[in-house]
């Protein structure tokens, strides 16, 4: 029954994707992209991937829409030129599609419990999580401990993107809407009282919820990354309501950047401490003498915090880099 909803949502997603590609107006494309992300997130949820659904919603539908809009504001929203080399593109695309469809006929069916994927490594994760880590969210266990190195890499990717955006467009001094020469112009959404009131009411809840997602990640969907994105979303909301300059005066850009570096360092530092205590890199067992399980949990909490800090800091750095870029 539920699968049918999945089929339906995916069909909608395909239509939306075509809409994205065909939309002449880039703004419309971005809007449809947001819809696409929502549909994908819902599908992921139906496919039992709660953590992924949460992330896709926070990132795909939330942060990336905001980023794209900021970029559109700087680069213009109209697609002018028509597609080139359509034939070639179509050929390439068709060949790719045909190849993959050829391959799919022998793929294990969706949900087949006997597929190799379900047989080989996955059961071990459940056993070991129960035995060695003892937290209910196996995804978090895999993410933070069994494949914690990947997650460190992921944090570094985010950090790299932050560096990149700052390197490319962060150099200009924050001018634009908050500069003194344009002081008479309205800043943010200050002139729209209803939005301000409601928005400001929502911010504490979002922050609270972000902390919940952060620290409850071992028990329910969520974790450092989703929490970081939500935290960033709250601050972004504040920035949009009150103007970026005001937001930046509360959390200055250097602090944001220090957050994004510090979180990565926290994560890596945990790994190094494990080494110093005689274990392998990121081997949390050794953190607490005599209690490997407790040590695992401690390590997971610490590195999730690192992830959250980095993600929040970096996403905010990126957003403010776009938002304060001089538009002329």
């Amino acid at each position: 029954m539920i699968e049918l909803f999945g089929v339906f949502l995916l069909a909608l997603a395909v239509i939306t994707a075509i809409g994205v590609v065909q939309a002449r107006n880039l703004f419309a494309g971005v809007m449809l992209m947001g819809i696409f992300s929502l549909l994908m997130a819902a599908t992921f949820f139906l496919l039992d991937a709660a953590d992924v659904a949460l992330t896709e919603a926070a990132v795909g539908a939330g942060i990336s829409t905001v980023l794209m809009l900021s970029a559109l504001a700087l680069s213009g929203a109209e697609e002018k030129a028509r597609s080139r080399s359509r034939i070639l593109a179509l050929i390439v695309v068709t060949v790719t599609a045909a190849t993959v469809i050829y391959a799919t006929f022998e793929k294990p069916r969706l949900g087949d419990p006997n597929a190799p994927v379900q047989q080989h490594v996955a059961p071990w994760y459940f056993d070991m999580t129960q035995e060695a880590i003892e937290i209910p969210n196996v995804v978090t266990a895999v993410l933070s401990s069994f494949r914690g190195y990947d997650t460190l890499g992921e944090v570094i990717v985010v950090f790299t993107a932050g560096i990149g955006v700052l390197f490319l467009i962060g150099a200009a001094a924050p001018k634009g809407r908050a500069s003194p020469s344009q002081g008479d112009l309205p800043v943010g959404l200050k002139h729209h009282q209803p939005i301000r009131v409601v928005g400001k009411l929502a911010i504490p809840f979002i922050l609270l919820f972000a902390f919940y997602v952060q620290f409850h990640g071992e028990y329910s969907p969520g974790g450092g990354f989703q929490a970081g994105a939500l935290f960033a979303a709250a601050i972004i909301l504040y920035g949009m309501l009150e103007g970026e300059a005001t937001a930046l005066s509360i959390i200055p850009a250097p602090v944001l950047f220090a957050m994004s570096a510090g979180g990565a360092l926290l994560f890596g530092g945990v790994g190094v401490v494990c080494m110093l205590l005689g274990g392998n890199f990121l081997q949390y067992d050794v953190l607490l003498a005599g209690s490997p399980v407790g040590a695992q949990q401690m390590g997971i909490i610490a590195i999730e915090l690192g992830v959250g800090i980095t993600v929040a800091g970096t996403l905010l750095s990126i957003f403010f880099a776009f938002a304060t870029r001089d538009q002329s």
Partner: peptide, 24 residues
């Protein structure tokens, strides 16, 4: 299976990072 989900969590992050850099 939790493993593909973990992989995709990472991949989503990579995706947004690339997107941000591309937009910049």
């Amino acid at each position: 299976n939790p493993l593909p989900q973990v992989l995709i969590l990472t991949a989503i992050v990579v995706g947004i990072s690339t997107l941000a850099l591309g937009l910049a």
